[in-house]
Nucleic acid binder design. Structure first.
Length: 555
RNA sequence: AGGGGCAUAGUUCAGCUGGUAGAACACCAGAUUCUGGUUCUGGGUGUCAUGGGUUCGAAUCCUGUUGCCCCUGCCA
């Protein structure tokens, strides 16, 4: 990519500079997820940033499972993570790495620090360590074990590895500065004892390195040049650099932090997402209302839309909340270009065309996708009895209502002009049927006399309609920021985030074509077949923009 | 209170070495349209957090202030 077309952000500025100055000939980045949960749209920002920078500058990006805490991790997640990244369209080729593959080297690094008198084995309990650490106002105090000899530390650390001590009884700590105003520098823990089975190394290890120690080493082993992470690690950077300086390493990576993605009407933290799943506020991690990548995939969001979205939001250091409408914009843009079109009636009223012959059926030709001729056409059966959308008829219609009212003429898409002559109601006063007449000369939807109609509405033939089920998804939360001013986000869950409609009346073509790719129910929205259901079950990906709804809201 | 960060349209971001601000989305108005969709045209809605300073000239440089975020796991 040429420089002019490159997006402008502070990280790209740094990379350009490093390349121009000759500090690096080419760049290496990495995406380092911990395999302890499902990826969400926030991770997509990191993925697009890490892989994207490598692509834009002709470098490489590694995928690295940061599996240093066996108590939380599982192979289930290493599989789903790879699936999601592939789906987004990124390729790590043969560069799939695991922190656990470096355990021996990380151990050696710890030994090197001990030998340099820069690390020691500490017997303080977690509670004691907290006391000794001090707090934001007060400096910490040295551990009484900090004075152990190098030989004793070497011996003790080897025995920690050998499994001689119980979980929590000892840790290895760096000797830095317990009085540092940066709490991360107050002799941080390097290794802890965890007699837990690891999903890859099994029972080979009972001591595991902490993130702060392992991460800079992993980056250096892989000769990562730019290690991109989120803002909360800014305070850890001095520690990151301390390890890079004090351990003998093949490279000196640079950590750069950027702001995470936040989106309106959703939550992004793992803890909160887990709560939604575990307490059944949603139906699993891939529930289409979830901001997880698997959820969005099931919802029908195209990967290309997510990438375009991430591209648009930019990269910076300030905390922000991106408008969900921007994501939807890219989803609609993508889907408008690629979706098949069908007609489906969600809330039917029966229409009888009084002057149309009984038992007669005509086939009308519909265009499958006006944005792409190659998608061809289909045949749609038309007959005397039809269904139209309840909202497409009004008895006392305002002037701007361009749909069906008594005495007005509208076009039935791809069929005829019809005029409503009367309304039939039940005892409760509800409309149960509309009687209409059609103009035979308008077949196909055009009038030979050049007469115009203000509205075009969709329809299905009552006898030919097939029933399908539609999951109508809406925002999971009622507030842009569900945890505004410390509110419990659970209290702001939208009770109407899912509406299931079991008897949507659809044209027959839906049965054969709608399962193959995303489609649009014309005038309604975009849909995909639900991957978790049998039969004709569709998830609403997004509604179409609706300027009439806006008009109604105004008055 | 200590440390680390961040403040530019409603929102997310551009704005390089100083020349009174732009994009996308959102929003408003109109045109086109056999989807009230799409497309097209027009509209900037801003004390560049704030006070002071340097300068002919400051969103850009210096400085004071305020606001917001993060940090006291043997999590990452």
């Amino acid at each position: 990519m040429s420089d002019e077309n490159l997006k402008s952000n502070f990280i790209y500025d740094i990379i350009k500079e490093d390349l121009a100055s000759g500090k690096h000939q080419s760049i290496v980045t990495r995406f380092p997820p911990e395999p302890n949960g499902y990826l969400h749209i926030g991770h997509a920002k990191a993925i697009c940033t890490d892989f994207g920078a490598a692509i834009d500058f002709g470098g490489t990006c590694n995928l690295r499972m940061d599996d240093t805490n066996p108590s939380k991790e599982d192979t289930e997640f290493v599989d789903s993570i790879q699936e999601d990244i592939k789906w987004l369209g990124f390729n790590w080729e043969d560069r799939l790495y695991y922190a656990s593959d470096y355990y021996e080297k990380i151990y050696e690094a710890a030994v090197e620090l001990i030998k340099k008198d820069l690390a020691f084995v500490c017997d303080l309990t977690p509670e004691q360590m907290r006391e000794f650490r001090g707090d934001l106002q007060n400096p910490g105090k040295d551990s009484p074990f900090k004075t152990r000899s190098i030989e004793e530390n070497l011996d003790l650390f080897a025995r920690m590895r050998a499994g001689e001590f119980e979980d929590g009884s000892k840790v290895l700590r760096a000797k830095i500065d317990v009085t540092s105003p940066n709490i991360n520098m107050r002799d941080p823990v390097l290794y802890r004892i965890l007699k837990i089975h690891h999903h890859r190394t099994g029972d080979e290890w009972c001591i595991y390195p902490m993130y702060d120690f392992a991460h800079p080493l992993e980056d250096a082993f892989e000769k990562v040049t730019h290690s991109l992470c989120s803002l909360e690690f800014e305070d850890h950077r001095p520690l990151y650099n301390w390890f890079i300086e004090n351990v003998t390493l093949p490279a000196k990576p640079r950590q750069i932090e950027f702001a995470r993605l936040n989106l309106t009407y959703t939550v992004m933290s793992k803890r909160k997402l887990r709560k939604l799943v575990e307490e059944n506020f949603v139906n699993g991690w891939d529930d289409p209302r979830m901001p997880t990548l698997c959820g969005m995939r099931r919802r029908g969001y195209p990967a290309t839309a997510i990438r375009a979205f991430i591209d648009q939001i930019g990269l910076a250091k300030r905390d922000s909340i991106v408008d969900f409408a921007l994501l939807e914009h890219f989803v609609r843009t993508e889907l408008n270009a690629s979706s098949l079109r069908f007609m489906g009636v969600f809330d039917p009223i029966k229409v009888v065309i009084e002057n149309y012959p009984e038992n007669h059926v005509e086939m009308m030709t519909g265009i499958n996708n006006p944005e792409n001729e190659n998608d061809g056409t289909r045949q749609i059966p038309f007959s005397r009895e039809l269904y139209i959308e309840r909202s497409d008829f009004m008895e006392d219609a305002p002037k701007k209502f361009f749909r069906l009212t008594v005495g007005s003429e509208v076009r039935l898409r791809y069929a005829y002009f019809i005029t409503c002559t009367s309304v039939i109601k039940n005892e409760a006063g509800e409309i149960v049927e509309l009687r209409c007449t059609y103009d035979p000369a308008t077949k196909g939807g055009d009038s030979p006399d050049g007469r115009k109609v203000k509205g075009t509405i969709h329809w299905v033939s009552a006898n030919h309609a097939i029933d399908c089920t539609v999951n109508q998804y809406d925002q999971l939360f009622t507030k842009e920021n569900p945890e505004e001013s410390g509110e419990d986000f659970i209290a702001n869950i939208n009770p109407d985030s899912l509406t299931v409609i079991t008897n949507v009346k659809a044209e027959p073509a839906v049965a054969e074509l709608a399962g193959t790719k995303p489609f649009q129910f014309e005038r309604t929205g975009y849909f995909v077949k639900d991957s978790g259901s049998e039969g004709l079950v569709f998830n609403r990906t997004a509604t179409l923009k609706d300027s009439w709804a806006k008009e109604v809201k105004k008055s």
